[in-house]
Design a binder for these strands. Sequence first.
DNA 1: CATGAATGAGAGTTCATTCAT
DNA 2: TATGAATGAACTCTCATTCAT
Lengths: 204, 204, 204, 204
Amino acid sequence: MRKKPQQQRSRQMVDTLVEATARCIAKNGLDGTTTPLIAETAGVSVGSLYQYFDSKEALIAALLEKLAHDLTRLLNQQVGLAGKLELEDMVRMAIRVTLTYMHEDEGFYLELARNWHRLPVDRVADVLERHIMDIGRLYFLQHVGKYPVENLPVRLFITYNSVLFTLVRFISQDSGLLKEDDIVDGLTVMITGYLRSSSAPASP
Amino acid sequence: MRKKPQQQRSRQMVDTLVEATARCIAKNGLDGTTTPLIAETAGVSVGSLYQYFDSKEALIAALLEKLAHDLTRLLNQQVGLAGKLELEDMVRMAIRVTLTYMHEDEGFYLELARNWHRLPVDRVADVLERHIMDIGRLYFLQHVGKYPVENLPVRLFITYNSVLFTLVRFISQDSGLLKEDDIVDGLTVMITGYLRSSSAPASP
Amino acid sequence: MRKKPQQQRSRQMVDTLVEATARCIAKNGLDGTTTPLIAETAGVSVGSLYQYFDSKEALIAALLEKLAHDLTRLLNQQVGLAGKLELEDMVRMAIRVTLTYMHEDEGFYLELARNWHRLPVDRVADVLERHIMDIGRLYFLQHVGKYPVENLPVRLFITYNSVLFTLVRFISQDSGLLKEDDIVDGLTVMITGYLRSSSAPASP
Amino acid sequence: MRKKPQQQRSRQMVDTLVEATARCIAKNGLDGTTTPLIAETAGVSVGSLYQYFDSKEALIAALLEKLAHDLTRLLNQQVGLAGKLELEDMVRMAIRVTLTYMHEDEGFYLELARNWHRLPVDRVADVLERHIMDIGRLYFLQHVGKYPVENLPVRLFITYNSVLFTLVRFISQDSGLLKEDDIVDGLTVMITGYLRSSSAPASP
DNA sequence: CATGAATGAGAGTTCATTCAT
DNA sequence: TATGAATGAACTCTCATTCAT
């Protein structure tokens, strides 16, 4: 970031721009998100955009940064609740929440997920992963004895990528042949079964 | 295709261009794949490109068409072999084969998988899905009684998307914390368990 | 117009571009009028052109729009004067004025007339036709009794197309065999006689 | 022409190409008439086109040359017939014939007339003018005493340009407000009156 | 001779970025 | 500081023409 916004007006400008970027991505897709358009959406001049961000990429990075921050807060609120649920209920709930997000904000999160590889996504991913890891650890700690999960990082990595991209693909293709409830049920069964399973891949 | 190649030379030109496109995508990514670059890679002028393809998109479509064709042949050869394996062995093999492809051709398939939503990917997807469906159906037919799988389309949709994108993400991030064997084992366990499970999502 | 010019500088830019387009058309012909050339003539970058005009065609349309506007003002000034003239003097004057225009601005209007069928010329044509119709109606209204002209639209359509394209052809070929005064006299005689004639095409 | 076609096969090739050019112009307009398209229309390779014509322009020139030749023959046949008609009938007939041509061959002649200034049209124009001049001279010679026409070249120049381009404009715009019969009648009245008038532009 | 594959200059257009005001 | 006018490299695509086969 070119300039630390120390005045309140500046901080607001930064926020406005970041939000405008999100709206552009949602409405026009990542490819249709141009700097002039972002500026116009923000009701600001392009010049101002470059006053606060070195480049388009920096702006998008800031957007993702904010996203990571928001998600952190969101997840922190949820951690407590999760512990009381049965594994299956928790998994199902997580899938449903994810699915809801995909449809929200005019498909903003969907577009992000589709284009993750073109985004400076590390920060968000890190935050998300750490949180999921924390939640997972906490959960299995509370249920120790019931599900002694080995190699948690791998399990969670497989889990959230499978869920996330299966849902993205499901929403994107929309062939009508597959029903949302079936997908959610299927994923729930698969993930629950996987997380309950003992680590050994091959039975002796 | 704008003009049907009548001389042998031009049939080769078409092939050269399609291959050059693949190389460009592998080396420069989809965004870095421009018509001048494709032409240069093919050792040809831009004009030649447009003698045989109506547009850049048509060229990429042709590439995917060829891919679909190649995959069809490849999978047809493999169908017979699959039936004799135990479910787990077959799943693990499929995952390993997929993983191998992701690393081949300088990451060409990886880049395709990453950018699936920007590609005229329907033909390939159709072919792949139908084949996977066929193989799946065949397999479970031969093992009837052992794994009476209900709602096969949903199961397979979840299965191949989970595997594919988990692997793509695994290769893309390369944090070094996760080991390939663990990912393969984990996926194998998850998918095998899922395909073996009875359809009912909630246990009684 | 893509963007409304808000600063004075940019309003001037729009004018500059439109004028440059006119100069290009005059100097290089319509086919030789390319966007790089227009930009260069205006002393501006191509990008600037596209900041204010959606396309080359839009730019040309704007030029014609301006032309229609200018002609409107010009004709409005002339309407009053016309009424006092005898029919023949008015016709001769109109022809002379048209001829003058054809030679002005390095043949700009000449080139427009030559290429009317490739131009988004409706607006100009409409304006011109309406004005000519108005002037004609007004004129014959003031001279009612003397020239009761039936089917005015047809008469004027024939009149101005005959004059315009005969002059265009005369200037374009310039074989030297035909003298300008003779053409003007001839057209004057023809048009005057035609407008004075009664409507019935066949004499009884 | 690059090469004198001495063999019969060659002469036929030239003809085929010229005819294909005409068909292309009629179907695709002058701008849509490309050398590859001409070749394809002729069922011949581009290479062959350039074997017989130095350039696209030469090909079009040849087309116009042929046109001039055809018109010469056509007009020669008609000269005799004209003399027996009254002036008005002859004028009306000429207008009607012209109008018919404009609609023939998918608008080929119409497109030529629209684009006369971009064509190497001199030869055709010369031929046409000379013939019209001949016919005119002959006609008025036979009717000497009735219409002693002074300055025939100017009169005929004005006459045929007025007729030709008024008709072209009429067909092109097709606003529906003007009726063909009215246009033909109007032109007939105008031209007949003009040709009958005495030379002096200003009445005493 | 005939073919049609190959060329490449040049057209219209876009957009991240700069800089005078 | 905020503005938005201005930039220009780079992209996709066309077509008259050439030349190896």
